[in-house]
C-alpha cells in the first residue's frame, strides 16, 4: 500500500511496540527545488526497513544509514543534503535543491 503521512508515524509506533529500534527522520528545512515539503517523514527500523520519504529517493539510502547509527547510539543527527555539499556528503539531490533532515530515535 502507498505510504501516506497518516500511516508512516503509525508504523513507527507499531515497530516500536514490537520491540524494534526505531528512528524518525523529518525534513526540517528546504532551499530551492526540494522534492518533499518540510515536515515529511521517513521512519526506519533497526534492520534498515523504512517507510515514507524525505526526497525523491535521492538521499533515503544515506538517511537510513545515519538513522541506524542513531538507533544504535541514541544521539539525534542533523543531516544536510544538496549540490552545495557534494564534497561533504556521498549523495546529493539531483534536482539542485538543498534539504536538512533531523534524525531522532524513538525512546
Amino acid at each position: 500500500m502507498l505510504a501516506t503521512d497518516e500511516n508512516i508515524l503509525a508504523r513507527a509506533e507499531d515497530w516500536r511496540k514490537s520491540g524494534k529500534g526505531v528512528a524518525i527522520a523529518t525534513v526540517t528545512e528546504t532551499w530551492g527545488s526540494a522534492p518533499r515539503p518540510v515536515g515529511s517523514h521517513l521512519v526506519i527500523d533497526d534492520e534498515g526497513n523504512f517507510l515514507g520519504s524525505v526526497s525523491g529517493g535521492c538521499v533515503e539510502g544515506e538517511v537510513v544509514t545515519e538513522a541506524m547509527d542513531t538507533i544504535a547510539d541514541g544521539k539525534p543527527r542533523m543531516l544536510e543534503f544538496g549540490v552545495a555539499d557534494e564534497a561533504a556528503w556521498r549523495v546529493g539531490l539531483s534536482c539542485g535543491g538543498r534539504i536538512r533532515v533531523y534524525v531522532e530515535k524513538v525512546v
Partner: peptide
C-alpha cells in the same frame, strides 16, 4: 522522540 509522544500524536 519519546514513545508516549509518538503514541499521542497518532492518537
Amino acid at each position: 522522540m519519546r514513545f508516549d509522544v509518538l503514541t499521542a500524536m497518532n492518537g
